[in-house]
Amino acid sequence: MDLNTITEVRDARLREPWRPGDAWLGGGTYLFSEPQPRLRRLIDLSRTGWEPLVRHADGSLEIAATCTIAELARFGRRSLAAPAAPLFEQCCRAFLASFKIWNMATVGGNLCNGLPAGPMISLTAALDGECLLRAQDGTRRRVRVGDFVLGAGVKDLAEGELLRSVTLPGRALGCRTAFRQASLYGLGRSAALVIGALDPVDGSLAVTVTAATTRPFRFWFPLPPDAGHLRRTIDSGVPAGEWFDDVHGLPEWRRHMVLRLAEEVRRELTAPAGAGEGVR
Rank of each mutant, 00 (worst) to 15 (best):
K155W: 00
I234S: 07
W50F: 04
I6V: 02
S183R: 03
R189F: 07
R74M: 13
S183Y: 08
D2L: 12
E89P: 04
F244D: 00
V209M: 04
L3N: 02
R141Q: 12
A211H: 08
R55Y: 10
P169F: 00
K155C: 00
T214W: 07
W243S: 02
T66H: 01
W102N: 00
R267D: 09
G28W: 13
T233K: 12
W24N: 07
E242P: 03
L223M: 00
D44H: 09
R55H: 14
R10S: 03
G114N: 09
G188E: 05
D2N: 06
R93N: 15
G186E: 05
A227M: 01
A117G: 12
G151S: 09
V279E: 06
R15K: 07
A57V: 15
P239I: 10
F244W: 04
I101V: 15
A227V: 05
E16W: 01
S46P: 05
G153C: 08
P225E: 05
V9R: 02
E8I: 05
M257S: 08
T208K: 12
T29E: 02
T29L: 00
W253Y: 07
F75H: 13
L111E: 02
G76R: 04
A23S: 10
L187D: 01
L111D: 12
H248V: 00
E8S: 09
E277N: 14
R171P: 08
A182I: 01
F221D: 12
A135R: 06
D147F: 05
E277P: 11
E161C: 11
L87K: 07
L3C: 01
